[in-house]
Simulated assay, not measured.
Amino acid sequence: MKPPVARAFGEPLPLVVGVDGSEPSLRAVDWATDEAALRGLPLRLVYASLWERYEGAALMEGLGRTSEQIAVDDIVEAAAQRAHRRHAEVRISTEVLPDDAVSVLLKEAHSAFALVLGSRGRSGMAELLLGSVSLAVAARAACPVIVVRGNHDNQADAGRHRSVLLGVGEGPNSAAAVRFAFQEAEVREAALHAVRAWRCPARESTDHPLMVAEPARLHERRAVEILESALNGAAAEHPSVDLRRRTEEGTARRVLLDASADADLLVVGAHHRDGSFGLQLGRVAHSVLHHSACPVAVVPQQTHRQDADLTRD
């Protein structure tokens, strides 16, 4: 069953994919096409004509075209044909926009169901770094941003594990991520593994062997309470979802990265921080975007710019 989707002027909001002709962006097109087919959404492919400003001028040079516009049109058309071959029933539109990639995608986010991006662009550091466009957009977008990671061993293939992984934050700021994760599990007919990490600070431990376990039990109990509070409402709204709750001792980053190897999608809430370099993601979201073994959805809270960490780490 497809969940209700946001609409503008009676039309469902599209999934928007940033394309640049690179292999990671084509994998993002594949993933987004599958997602659009699952959810019954239109697919919008956008190319920013100044993409090379962020991901390297080698894009145009490598294509060897005398006309940049011809090259851009070829890239967009190839992406559209690829999506059509994958799911002919999905309605596809394309557009080339004359601006840098981050500006284009952030504007698109205001009228998109979600943005889907490749994990890296055309950079000489491609094997080491998350693409600068993906990271900048995930930190600031008004809608969910899915970065298609898991490029090795076909980890990014939809439905391979029939499992959605949710990192559960604290308080109302995690509500949007929880709702998104339940919807994803429902449309995929997948199990939803909701995880809350916890830690017992060293200063709370004691040398007495009979007292060592007590602080840990308190922190674990608190993690269980947070998990139940965050999930109860959405679980009642999605009774068909196979919900599996889990608390685990450790940092949220380690717990989620370990679990991502067995998931089709990892969902975390956006944790925007005001810093000297502008809005930045929280540590957990930043870490999983760089190192997750599967695609990552970063979901901003609609009414709050701040989102709690999954645990202190």
Rank of each mutant, 00 (worst) to 15 (best):
R254W: 09
I75P: 02
A79L: 06
G40V: 09
Y54W: 06
D242F: 00
M211G: 15
L50N: 15
E184R: 11
A202N: 07
A28N: 08
L15G: 01
L289N: 07
R160L: 11
P300C: 10
A263M: 01
L15S: 00
R217I: 01
H272K: 07
A80I: 11
R244K: 12
P144L: 02
N151C: 01
A139W: 06
R160A: 14
P172Q: 07
F9T: 00
D264W: 00
R85Y: 00
V96Y: 04
N173L: 01
R65Q: 01
Q81W: 00
R82E: 02
V299Q: 07
A216Q: 14
H272C: 12
D99A: 14
H304Y: 02
A202Y: 05
V46G: 11
H286R: 12
R85I: 00
G62V: 03
A79M: 12
E127F: 01
E248M: 14
D309A: 12
A101L: 15
T66S: 11
R254Q: 14
V255G: 04
A79E: 03
V147E: 10
E220A: 10
V267N: 09
L45R: 09
G269I: 03
E68W: 08
A216P: 03
E95D: 14
R39S: 09
I92T: 06
A181Y: 07
L130R: 07
A175Q: 05
G121M: 10
Y47L: 15
A136P: 02
A141K: 06
D313S: 14
Y47S: 06
R91Q: 13
A190C: 12
A230K: 08
H84S: 05
A213F: 07
V133E: 13
L256H: 03
R120G: 02
D34V: 00
A158S: 11
V72R: 09
G56L: 08
H286F: 05
E11K: 15
T303K: 10
D242C: 03
F113R: 13
E186T: 00
G282L: 08
V137L: 12
R217M: 09
E225S: 15
L256M: 06
A177C: 13
P3F: 08
V164Y: 04
R254P: 04
C200T: 15
R203P: 06
A270C: 13
S134M: 04
G275A: 08
R65W: 09
L43H: 05
W31R: 04
E186W: 00
G278Y: 04
V96E: 11
